[in-house]
Design a protein around this nucleic acid. Sequence first.
DNA 1: TTGTAAGCGTTATCAA
DNA 2: TTGATAACGCTTACAA
Lengths: 341, 341
Amino acid sequence: MNKKNITFSDIAEYTHFSKTTISRYFNNPDSLTLENQQIIADALEALDYKENKVARILANGKTEFIGIIIPNLYMHYYSAILDQILSTYEKYGYKFLVFTVKDNEETERKYIQELLAYKIEGMIILSHNLTSKELASYNIPIVAIEREDKHICSVNTDNYMGGVQATSLLAKSGAEILIHINADLSPEVPSYERIHGFLNTCAEQNLPYELILTDTGHSYEESIDVFYRLLDEIDQKYKDKVKGLFLPNDTFANIILNRLFQRYGKLPDDYKIVGFDDSPISRESVIPTSTVGQQIDKIADTALQILSERIKENHKRKPRTFLEPVHKVITPILLKRETTK
Amino acid sequence: MNKKNITFSDIAEYTHFSKTTISRYFNNPDSLTLENQQIIADALEALDYKENKVARILANGKTEFIGIIIPNLYMHYYSAILDQILSTYEKYGYKFLVFTVKDNEETERKYIQELLAYKIEGMIILSHNLTSKELASYNIPIVAIEREDKHICSVNTDNYMGGVQATSLLAKSGAEILIHINADLSPEVPSYERIHGFLNTCAEQNLPYELILTDTGHSYEESIDVFYRLLDEIDQKYKDKVKGLFLPNDTFANIILNRLFQRYGKLPDDYKIVGFDDSPISRESVIPTSTVGQQIDKIADTALQILSERIKENHKRKPRTFLEPVHKVITPILLKRETTK
DNA sequence: TTGTAAGCGTTATCAA
DNA sequence: TTGATAACGCTTACAA
């Protein structure tokens, strides 16, 4: 802060080159002789030059910023996704400006404006506040992850396949009645497909089943109440049957597993449980819980692949104005653990 | 991208004001008459103006960027901290550029250079790769969170107090032998103080204790091996005593709790357990685990308070060149749950 | 292979 | 209360 910043002008003066040549040293070094490259390199060292990407952005329009809007980082799924997105820096070079948004449309719009003011080149959206139609109207490359995505690109887990895998595993482990509990989802969110996967598998294999769509609570405490009640009902209703429970996430699976352990000191033989997400709790539960794992690294990489392609397209002198949204699907991985023995 | 961006020049032309006046409309509206404010407001609307903060930064030097270097977002503690840091946007207005760095000095230096190139105004560091001395040499405001912090500002949990709270709770719950297991930490990291808190409490209250400092493993699987072995040893050694176990985090506490549950179908009366962090696993464990909670919201807010003060100082025409590092300490909160009944 | 000069879209300084 | 003009530090034609 003390002495003024070293700029290309200073280096130009010092080396008796022009600013342009200094710029070339950074952007197209091969166009300089090796000697001259060395001279400039030495000068940078001698003057302790620090690059200024803000000036570069203003001049060439490429910020290499990608904006991320994510509901929170408190839930493991979201932080795991962000973790993987951030680590794509080494491969793609984009820097990430991250905002968390609770359920508030106006806030989300405000944050998007802020991101646009910083000239982000693309955006990754995990929140559910704005429709994909509105998002598409911003006219910048956008990838949605696990949310409604009609009008924008997206990367999702193959939720249908996940539902099939979970249901089949329960069936194979000896379940006589298959039960899937889920929130009453909108058919537009990708995870709705898990329900289809469950239903179709039961139908195809001719398995008795029950589908319970209900409010699963908005906090851990609420969810505990909900699932304790449901478990009691199920216990009553299917007393003499082996019950196969497919839960929409590992947290819910864990609530049920804990309840059974607290009661019986073990997982009774007439209960089989499968969760979803392969979150830490599924490994750290009192006995390891079977679950359907999302390939979060692939999801993140695919999202960046889509973005970087479209960003490159925008940098062409004559970018195509409209590209159809693409929708990629990543296969989940079934993890057979102790709760489906 | 199609038609060129609307700039102050366009608005100036449209309204017959100068660029300067348009700038004033944004930065010092009171210096314009209400009429003229309205005229400009209408023009912005009519022309669909989008602000460009990159240009503004280049002109006034204020990016409002803060860089964050964090080991990962996979561990809940880190993502919880980042979550709270991001939500300070509403209060302080800073935007965050986030990098994750594994154990690699060179990578961290590279990322810091990148952050500096984007003219960040401050930095929050949670990683352990570089010494605080080296970090201080970058000459920008930096706050460390739970890491070595001799030469830079920091915000930490009062780890000593945490150790005292945990140990006292175990004592009160009837433990006859107090055991603290921890990694063989450097005395420079803040969490080392937990050990002091444990030892001093045992000494003051004249309690029998054992301090086990050992390699706790570098993965969940490794940790399981370590703690199963330790538990067997403890079980042998203190057969007829009520054992009070103070673990350095909730994950480790959970490993022990699960092992006991798997063996006995419940937490035996001669085991009392306290973890650290109030991470989700402490609530979601087979029975809720007592733990010491860090006030992560306060930690994040305090970090930003320190940064924003120092950044403001830097914006003064004559900033003080050197400010002593400040070290803030946030009191932890003891959570008494089922494992210390 | 190198240089000149005109941007990029703001803000700051000084003057009116 | 408003304006003219020179920064801010880099890139990009176009020339040589």
